[in-house]
């Protein structure tokens, strides 16, 4: 497979990979690194790519696994220190800034969701995959995907209504 063929295959979904990575890893740089890593992995196995039925779904699964691994290894290292600094120092200021933009609030709310729900909301509401595809990517059954998605949507709605009704906390 030539490089141009590979690019043709990868082009349509590389943004999706990046967005999923960013959803999970939050930091843009981290997400860029992860995307690059995944594309390079695909490129390394480009002979096998032709055998895969659905390269896109396969890549999304890869992204999910890669990002979750990243998060795990980070937690094992020194995320705790970084994290406590992060919330202590920035909480007030960040909230003030975000108060101006309720759209950003949604991203805050989504950050607080559990990983699984984050991934599902990302795949469904942002990337607009259908349930069968999501179920395949995440190796779950469709009902479980629906349940998780429903929970996530309800959480987002509740938090949004709260902020909407009582003003921003």
């Amino acid at each position: 497979m030539k490089q141009s063929d590979f690019v043709k295959i990868v082009m349509p979904f590389k943004d999706k990979v990046f967005r999923l990575a960013k959803r999970l890893l939050v930091s843009r740089e981290e997400a860029e690194d992860a995307t690059q890593e995944i594309l390079l992995k695909l490129w390394k196995n480009n002979k096998k790519i032709e055998d895969y039925k659905n390269v896109e779904a396969f890549s999304m699964t890869m992204t999910k696994n890669f990002c979750l691994d990243r998060l795990k290894s980070k937690q094992a290292q020194n995320l705790k220190i970084v994290h406590s600094n992060y919330t202590d120092g920035n909480a007030c200021l960040q909230k003030q800034v975000e108060a101006k933009d309720s759209v950003d609030w949604v991203s805050r709310i989504m950050e607080d969701l559990p990983e699984q729900q984050k991934i599902i909301v990302q795949l469904r509401d942002i990337e607009e995959y259908d349930f069968a595809e999501i179920a395949k990517m995440l190796d779950m059954n469709e009902t479980a995907v629906r349940v998780n998605l429903s929970r996530a949507r309800k959480t987002i709605r509740e938090k949004l209504t709260n902020t909407h009704q009582y003003g921003i906390k």
Binding site: F6, D15, R19, T35, L40, I126, R157, L160, T161
Partner: peptide, 28 residues
């Protein structure tokens, strides 16, 4: 229903985000 608005706005906004970095495929 207004409180749903930011959610959908956010979804459509985030769909526009793109990966702009070049992947150094040649380097391999």
């Amino acid at each position: 229903l207004e409180h749903y608005k930011p959610m959908f706005q956010y979804f459509s906004n985030s769909k526009k985000e793109q990966y702009t970095k070049d992947v150094p495929l040649k380097s391999i």
